[in-house]
Design a protein around this nucleic acid. Sequence first.
DNA 1: TAGATTGTTAATCGATTAACAATC
DNA 2: TAGATTGTTAATCGATTAACAATC
Lengths: 212, 212
Amino acid sequence: MKKLPKSASIPTLRRLPKYLHFLQKLQSTDEKFISATKIANEFGIEPILVRKDLSTTGIVGKPKIGFELERLIKSINEFLNWHSVQNAVIVGVGGLGKAIMGYVGFQDYGLNIVAAFDSDKTLIGKKIKDVQVFPINELPEIVKSNEATIGVITVPATSAQFICDVLVGSGIKGIWNFAPRALKVNNDVILENAQLSQSLAVLTHKMVTKNS
Amino acid sequence: MKKLPKSASIPTLRRLPKYLHFLQKLQSTDEKFISATKIANEFGIEPILVRKDLSTTGIVGKPKIGFELERLIKSINEFLNWHSVQNAVIVGVGGLGKAIMGYVGFQDYGLNIVAAFDSDKTLIGKKIKDVQVFPINELPEIVKSNEATIGVITVPATSAQFICDVLVGSGIKGIWNFAPRALKVNNDVILENAQLSQSLAVLTHKMVTKNS
DNA sequence: TAGATTGTTAATCGATTAACAATC
DNA sequence: TAGATTGTTAATCGATTAACAATC
C-alpha cells in the first residue's frame, strides 16, 4: 500500500517547482547526481533548507554523493501530484485565460485543460490552441463527463464568486483563482489564489525600501 | 521630510493587495469606516493579523470605530508604492506577454507598460492594446528615454537570463520574472519570481493531502 | 456608561538555521 | 583514509496569536 504524502509548508511547496525547473535543465547534461549544496547555490539559499525541502518529498540521498537526479525529479513530481494527469476547465477566455489555455508548459505539471467557458457568444464554438470554448450552462455536464477536478477562474472580479459556485456545484475539487476577489468555498474544496497583484506588491514594496 | 516606509514580511506584502481589493469593492457602498475584524472575517483569518498588517503601512485607527476607508486605501497604496506611476517594459510577446500587456488592472497598481520587445520580426511594429513591440536591440535606448524602472520577463526559459542581463544593463531596477528559470542579478536589483508553477504546486499538493 | 475596537506587550508556534554523528 | 554530504536533533529566529489596557 502506497503511503500518503505528508503535507508540507507553503514556503516549501513554492520552492519545490523552482528546484524542479533547475533539475530538469540539468537533465540535458550528463550529470547523474546532484547535491543539495549545488541546488542551494543556484538559488542563493542555505543547503540545509534544500535538504529539508527534499526530504519532505520522501527521497533519501547518499552521503558524499547527493541525490540521484532522475529519482529526485520523480520524487518531487509525485509529491506535487504532477506525475498523474488532472483534467481542468477554465472559465473566462480573456487575455489571461487565452494565455493559460495556450501554455504548453502545464503538461509538465500534469494539468490538462479539457474545456473553456465564456459568456461571450462570439467566442463560443471557437478553439484556442485545441481547447474549445463552451457556454457556461454546459459547464456542469462537461466537468462531469471529463471528470475534471480543477477549475481555473480568469473572469472579471464581479462574476468570480458566481463562477466559483457553479464550478464547486459541478464537483470541482480545486479552484485556481486569478480574479482579484476573495472567494468563499466549502471546507472540502481547495482554493488557491494566484493574483498577480500579490507578487507585484512584493516587488514594488521592496524597490522602495531596499535602501532602508 | 517624508519618512521611508519600513520593510514588511513577504506574507504581509502578499496579504495587503487582498485587503485592497476588498476595500475598493466597499467604496461603492456608503460605508466610511471598516474594522480589522470585518476584513478578517472576509478572508477567514485572525483580526489581530489584519491589525498588524495594517499598522505596518503606518495607518492609525480609531478604537471602537475602525479605520477610515479612504485613508486606509491610500495608506496601503502608498506603502506598496502603487500611488505613483512606475514605467515598465515587457520582453516576450507570447500568450502571457500579450495578456499582461492587455490587462488594464495594472493601472490600479501604478504599473505603466510603455513598450514591449520580442525577437520575432513579424511582431515588431505591431501594437497590442496601445503598447508597441520593438526589437530587442532598441531596448536600452527605450528604457532610458522612458525612465522605465521595472522589466517584465515573459520569454521562454532558455533566453530569460540573457534578457535579464540586457534589462539590468539598461538601468532597470526591478525584475518581474515569469519565465520558469532562476535568474541571477546584482544586489542592487530587486528580483521577484511570479511563476505560475509556484501557486499550482500549492493547489495540487493540498488536493492530494487534504484528507491526511 | 457599556461594548467594541485599537495598539502594545508578551507568549506561542512554526520555519529556518546550526551542530554534528553517520557514511559513501 | 580524508573530504564531502546526508539526515537527525537542537537552537534560533521571525511570524502569528493571545492578553489586556486604552479609548471613542
